[in-house]
């Protein structure tokens, strides 16, 4: 459904997408994860055939992004990161406008409106200006507009950014419904909990794909032991840990520190060292890595893993 081959995008000397290869099967939901500036938006725009790549190619819904750009656009639904609808038009006017651009028949329109109002719950707001909707409702409206023409592939660029948790859950519920109907979804996000819900996750860093696979498989990449420590002096503890041989990744999560250890027996040594510096350990335990741990682990070690 979506296949990327040696895709490169350069802006002058800046490499936004670095020889990327990726394949998403039909009906899959794949998440694209990476920090700001990793190249997520650039990649999404290239796949939507509105930004020409420097080199390489990609096929989306069976169409080449360069040669068949216009045919491809009939098969995809793309939600840009910025709200792309008209804030000075009402909900209904926006829906009408986009259904006309996709040239839906009267019958198709009626059916689709029923469907999108059903999942979006926007019908009572249909005469509201889009600009007056809440962030969550806006995103649901935008999603409705890109679903009107029944696309085969959905490309969503951080659709839940800045949206409250409840609306986010609502939004994902709609996405799962769409996926059940066989739509392939490629969604970029900076929320790791969202990435965990995807069948496949792609880690993007500085334009490079550093890992790709199911969340479970990605977690197996980490062949080290992950510990979580909470103590009274987080910062001092961190500087102690940094000097210990055998610790490869340290990161702070609020009051807690996550670190990875090559061998379990080093743990006693670490406890002693912390005590010597006067840090009181409140809790120290081995934990299952989250995707976030994996991402940080991969970034720190600069390991390149091609998977999937």
């Amino acid at each position: 459904m979506l296949e990327i081959l040696n895709l490169l995008k350069q802006y002058g000397s800046l490499v936004a997408v670095d020889y990327l290869n990726l394949k998403i099967e039909k009906g899959e939901m794949a998440g694209l994860v990476g920090p700001d500036g990793a190249g997520k938006t650039t990649l999404m725009r290239i796949l939507s055939a509105i930004l020409p790549p420097t080199s390489g190619s990609a096929r989306v819904a069976g169409y080449d992004i360069i040669r068949d750009a216009e045919k491809l656009k009939e098969k995809i639904g793309y939600m840009p990161q910025r709200f792309g609808l008209y804030e000075d038009l009402t909900v209904l006017e926006n829906l009408n406008f986009f259904s006309e651009l996709y040239q839906l028949s009267k019958k198709q329109k009626d059916e689709k409106y029923k469907e999108v109002f059903n999942f979006s719950q926007l019908e009572p707001f249909k005469d509201f200006l889009a600009g007056n909707l809440s962030g969550g409702m806006k995103q649901k409206l935008a999603l409705s507009c890109v679903l009107l023409h029944t696309p085969e592939v959905l490309l969503l660029d951080e659709p839940t950014r800045g949206v409250d948790p409840l609306s986010r859950r609502d939004f994902w519920r709609i996405l799962f419904e769409q996926q059940k109907r066989g739509i392939t979804i490629f969604i970029s996000t900076s929320y790791m909990d969202e990435a965990e819900r995807c069948q496949k996750v792609a880690f993007l860093d500085k334009g490079r794909l550093i890992a790709y696979g199911t969340p479970k498989k990605l977690k197996e990449i980490m062949n080290e032991f992950l510990y979580e420590i909470s103590c009274d002096k987080t910062r001092e503890a961190k500087s102690v840990l940094e000097k210990v041989d055998g610790i490869s990744g340290i990161s702070i999560f609020g009051e807690k520190i996550h670190f990875t250890l090559r061998e379990e027996k080093l743990l006693a040594n670490i406890k002693n060292k912390l005590k010597d510096t006067g840090v009181e350990i409140l809790n120290l335990r081995r934990i299952e890595p989250s995707l976030e741990d994996i991402f940080i682990f991969l970034k720190q070690d600069k390991i390149e893993i091609r998977n999937g």
């Binding site: 725009r45 509105i50 216009e70 793309y78 792309g84 609808l85 986009f98 651009l101 996709y102 935008a142």
Partner: peptide, 14 residues
Amino acid sequence: EIGTIEQLMVTPIK
């Protein structure tokens, strides 16, 4: 400026 052109560009409009 407001970003709506991006949404227009991904439609099959000529």
